[in-house]
Write a protein that binds this DNA or RNA. Structure first.
Lengths: 154, 154
DNA sequence: ATTTATTACTTGTGTTTCGCAAGCAAAAAT
DNA sequence: ATTTTTGCTTGCGAAACACAAGTAATAAAT
């Protein structure tokens, strides 16, 4: 699926890729909520429909934002992981959270307000470092489960 | 139009408001490209359809992100301006631009790369300050064109 | 070994969002 | 008085999204 860019504006072009209901949500789920399989996503609070999920995962892979792989010792599950290109979206996601924390709480009072949000509020850079490091660690252990060389694209 | 929030996640909730093709683009056009009238938007590079523009401006006003007003000396034009709530979206827009600059240029080579983008790349905070200040100045002069007390909502 | 359950999807059918073209009323310019 | 500009609305087709059901491959349970 060939991406159409509305114009040459960098801001608008980013939204040509990311500006819909699901792309950034899925990336957030992987980055912050440890989702890595199809099942994981379908069980999320956001409750994405499976056909949408399927098409979005395809798009994300086409854009080079995620990789799809199978572990040799588990032929049932497909594992989705973020690329560095997607990890660079972290600042955008953090800023969305900060804005939400500041301005959406009044119209949407049940929005979560845990220690994570407090850290984000008080030290955005630290929050970013923490989740990125956690993600890279998780990725390393997942990869280490078995010799990764046997993985496959299909 | 009542907004539906998918869940209690702050990140997802921000996207429940902003996660579509146009909301952030329109805000960017106002913030960075001096657009303030209906005509201005229809003439933009992004070429938004008038019915979509109309409905998005309505939504933005409902969310308290923009205000609609008429200058007493110009009964034809309607002026749209960003609220502080919308100006707080600046960091998100900047991060979108930074990501675009870093990762989209290869697949979309005609993306602009002017002095503005160089400043954004080298000093994001300064870029943010500059455009916010410019916006507030523009707003002040627009308001000063005539005694603002006569403005109207309809 | 056979049945059952899990995982990762696809397919079909609405509904909502978006895009294109045209039209229309009020204000302003000619 | 007529034309143009501005800020919209309306109608219709296309695309994105939502809901429900079904399928094939693997794995677990009996």
């Amino acid at each position: 699926m060939e991406t159409k860019y509305r114009c040459n504006c960098p801001f608008t072009s980013a939204l040509d890729v990311l500006g819909d209901k699901w792309m950034l949500v899925i990336i957030k789920q992987m980055l912050i909520e440890d989702k890595e399989t199809f099942k994981d996503f379908t069980e999320s609070d956001e409750a994405i429909a499976t056909n949408i999920l399927s098409s979005k995962l395809k798009q994300l892979e086409e854009f080079g934002l995620i990789t799809k792989s199978k572990l040799p010792n588990n032929k049932k599950s497909v594992y989705y992981h973020l690329t560095d290109k997607a990890l660079d979206l972290t600042p955008i996601i953090l800023e969305l959270g900060i804005w939400s924390d500041k301005h959406l709480r009044e119209v949407h009072p049940t929005i979560v307000n845990d220690e994570g949000m407090q850290l984000l509020r008080t030290d955005k850079a630290e929050f970013g470092r923490v989740i990125e490091e956690k993600y890279r660690e998780k990725l390393a252990t997942t990869m280490a489960i078995s010799n990764w060389g046997d993985s496959d694209k299909s």
